[in-house]
Design a protein around this nucleic acid. Sequence first.
DNA 1: GCCCCGAATGATAGCGCTAACAAAGCCGGC
DNA 2: GCCGGCTTTGTTAGCGCTATCATTCGGGGC
Lengths: 348, 348
Amino acid sequence: MGDLVKPAGPGSGRGTGTVVMADVARLAGVSPMTVSRVLNSPGRVAPETRLRVLDAVRELGYRPNSAARVLATGRSRVLGVVGFDTTLYGPASMLFGIEQAARDAEYGVTITSLAALTQRNVAEAVDRLRGQSVDGVIIIAPHVASVEGLADVSAGLPVVAVGGGDGGVIPVAAVDQYAGAAAATRHLLDLGHRTVRHLAGPSDWLEAGARRKAWEDTLRAAGREVPPVVFGDWSPHSGYEFGKRLADDPSVTAVFTANDQMAVGLIRALHEAGRRIPDDVSIVGFDDVPESAYLSPPLTTVGQDFGQVGRHALRLLLERIGGAPVEEGRRITVEPELIVRQSTGRPG
Amino acid sequence: MGDLVKPAGPGSGRGTGTVVMADVARLAGVSPMTVSRVLNSPGRVAPETRLRVLDAVRELGYRPNSAARVLATGRSRVLGVVGFDTTLYGPASMLFGIEQAARDAEYGVTITSLAALTQRNVAEAVDRLRGQSVDGVIIIAPHVASVEGLADVSAGLPVVAVGGGDGGVIPVAAVDQYAGAAAATRHLLDLGHRTVRHLAGPSDWLEAGARRKAWEDTLRAAGREVPPVVFGDWSPHSGYEFGKRLADDPSVTAVFTANDQMAVGLIRALHEAGRRIPDDVSIVGFDDVPESAYLSPPLTTVGQDFGQVGRHALRLLLERIGGAPVEEGRRITVEPELIVRQSTGRPG
DNA sequence: GCCCCGAATGATAGCGCTAACAAAGCCGGC
DNA sequence: GCCGGCTTTGTTAGCGCTATCATTCGGGGC
């Protein structure tokens, strides 16, 4: 049969020669279907044919058109990530961890960050991603509002959350914030401090809530006074403001801040007020940002393995994509690690 | 004519009822083509019909299938970003800036990070993205190796770089590293320091090279001695190591580090050695990470507007996607800003 | 009143791929 | 030697959308 002279389609407009599967098939002397099989289920085709096809693929530099594949299969091997404040160390590391895990599983990742973490915005983001034919969505949503009602939004689309969420219908992979914060608080009590002040994260962040609760529970369990909480916004500035207020109160000997950045601000304020760390005040942070080990003094903090959380999140998502039954309250936690450096010591 | 009873295709397998364009058309009493026109070129359809169609879209909750659209048009409205070490503040901010700009332009963003920034890896990443039918690629590639030979790789696919690149065939959007580093160095000289030491970034990073050259040129222009450079790896640790070596040399009164993280380590080492900042040694960093203002002492540094760079990069990319002629050496730079805080002062 | 033109809409085909079934070839068992 | 079952390959159709051309209709110009 002669070649059909077909008009260049819109897709092939760019670049002179877009190689399609039919070209490969022709060169290898097989049908397009066989080429498809070589690419997708190599076992089901005779070895010799397989090699011939692969040679043709290489020779022509053929790359499958993902859009066509998506259209035909309904699966895209791309997942969406909804992030928030991805310049913060935590979320950025989380994103990186997910991306790594996704790549290993041969999934692509498309991201959407949110300006504000409201339920409406999250819903919009998920919808936008759905429009991009993602197979599933991971939400880096450490925010109360963002998880509520997500179940409706995600109708028919697998969704998992990382770093927060209280394990409703949506599976969650997270660091055990509670354990980390409890360890931090206990560490300070063990050193002999009578009680521990806490600079919490924003009250609507789930992680902030968990850390705060652990701090409170730990104090209570030890029969200690629970001082009033103060809420920061994760920024060094809020730590600084907190520190300025604290500096005049000599009864304060130990502080646990909900992240390292706030600890930086706190340290600064205490330095300015002439209070020494850890001699006058002990400080524990949370996150173990790369700078922590080199602050003055090196910061005692709680380290989290974001890479591992990312891998777990992906695993949960793939379970769902694979059609695993919806299991209420599915949750994987990773244990954080208290890293004792020089910002903590015995009181007085 | 009667409805054809067609078997549920693979794409519609998930979820009970995937609404497609034909459904909307039926409800609105028009042909699918008219629905398509309403969605893509609203002007070309009668206002009354348009409303009827839009109502139908709303009522059914219709969402166009992007894969089908891509297949039919050859354009995806998705762009790829190739990043490296996206947990670093700079790259993370860059990514965020690009994502914001892309969203405003109604583009999706899919990311790929690299484990190592080699030419081969970059080529692979670009290829992977091409396979995902992106319309163009932005490379956050501050690395010498990553830009070389990229022109070949990108054949037929619009590519721009941010944050580095020397303006070959590939357009570049970047902060004017040279100007920033020159300002930092000049600032120290203006304060009366005889010369300035420099802790550079890795020698194969373009930004590191630009900052180093600016430092050197500025010293030479002022007729000062140019001390030997030391190369760090951006980490606080490398700053710390540098600081330990420096601490014994009382002739050193001013240091310019190629980023803030290294400055943190340097400060730590100098503190440990009992040298005061800025009384004994003045320090200037680069990046203006959020912590910088709250270090002890608050760090004088060079701030970069990553959001603006991201927008410029996107603009360049859209130019290319729009079919603008390839213009050799196209380059947009953003001016950085020297932020003077308390880590710099007059010598001795 | 006829024709031509533009605006609005429809019919058809095809983007590149894969699911599902069909066909062909080969084996051994009886 | 013929048949049932396996392996390997091919054929057909369709995923959901849009480009292109065809069609219809209404309104001036002469």
